[in-house]
């Protein structure tokens, strides 16, 4: 990075740190922060879509659809989320390989589950064993994102289902009185109004999603926890930048990062709540109306 970094052992402290913090591996560490942000940016909308679909299914008049919706939302009750994370990653991986196996090798006769082994034909391996490293990483990451989306989608479905029921019944009856169909009342009356009721739950969920991101580490993605452990471990003098065990300081850095994230989110969500309360038939909306008048 800097020219004076040629021989780190001869540098004084400030310059040594300038070199140390800008070496190659540290850039991968900084990139992993982007991985976390990317995960949040993808998971949040996908989970919201899953949640919306789940809540809609739970309200459905078609019984099987309702059962699916109810099961999906009930799935997360009473069971630690981390169990789901560990479970889905293997289950999804095996499901995909099984499907690929059925498609790619229809004349394979051996059973797939042989005792303690899960064997599919070579063509069905996902990703292919000769695929480049980045494909493996991208595959791991997308499985992780999908797992997060399923689990948090179930939480979101719970919140949205409650919010849909919280919209005053009179509003829907007004829609019906105007001759709207069930579908029209849903999309034109219920959905625009439900967000303010869903927001406390959803913002809580967002905070929890932020705090769940270190679990990426458990799913085999090289995230910030992985790099903090990797870089913080003590380095002997064989390395270019020898230092004792600094993991404590790296984890303190992560702690500060997460505290900053939650603080910023709190402020932004506070603003969003005020914005969504505008013109609503709630106490906050009423207060805003009075303040203007």
């Amino acid at each position: 990075m800097f020219e004076f970094c040629e021989d780190p052992s001869a540098l004084e402290t400030a310059r040594w740190f300038a070199c140390y913090l800008t070496n190659g591996v540290h850039f991968r560490f900084y990139q992993s922060f982007l991985t976390v942000l990317l995960l949040l940016a993808i998971t949040a909308p996908v989970a919201l879509v899953f949640g919306f679909a789940g809540a809609m299914a739970s309200r459905s008049h078609v019984a099987p659809l309702r059962w699916i919706g109810k099961t999906y939302t009930a799935m997360v009750r009473g069971v630690p989320d981390i169990a789901f994370f560990l479970f889905f990653v293997i289950a999804l991986d095996q499901a995909l390989e099984w499907l690929a196996h059925q498609a790619a090798c229809p004349d394979w006769t051996d059973p797939i589950r042989q005792g303690a082994n899960f064997i599919v034909c070579d063509a069905a391996k996902i990703p292919q064993s000769n695929a480049p490293q980045w494909v493996h990483e991208a595959y791991n990451f997308s499985i992780a994102v999908f797992t997060f989306a399923i689990v948090f989608g179930a939480f979101a479905a719970n919140v949205l289902f409650g919010a849909m029921r919280a919209v005053p019944r009179a509003q829907l009856e007004t829609g019906e009185a105007y001759g709207m169909t069930r579908r029209q009342t849903f999309w034109r009356i219920l959905v625009p109004q439900m967000w303010i009721y869903a927001l406390p739950g959803l913002s809580n969920l967002w905070m929890i999603l932020i705090k769940a991101t270190p679990l990426l580490f458990l799913l085999g993605v090289e995230d910030i926890v992985y790099w903090a452990r990797e870089l913080g471990g003590s380095r002997t003098s064989q390395y270019q930048y020898p230092h004792p065990d600094w993991r404590l300081w790296y984890f303190l850095g992560l702690l500060v990062f997460y505290l900053g994230m939650t603080r910023i989110s709190e402020i932004l969500l506070g603003r969003l709540t005020r914005r969504l309360s505008r013109g609503q038939a709630t106490m906050a909306g009423e207060d805003q109306r009075k303040a203007v008048a």
């Binding site: 769940a212 926890v225 984890f251 702690l255 997460y258």
Partner: peptide, 22 residues
């Protein structure tokens, strides 16, 4: 309250372990 509610439990465990080891 802010520090313990604002950061992931996972990171708290790591941090505590590294501290205790020292």
């Amino acid at each position: 309250i802010f520090i313990f509610r604002g950061s992931p439990l996972f990171i708290q465990f790591f941090l505590a372990y590294e501290t205790f080891v020292l």
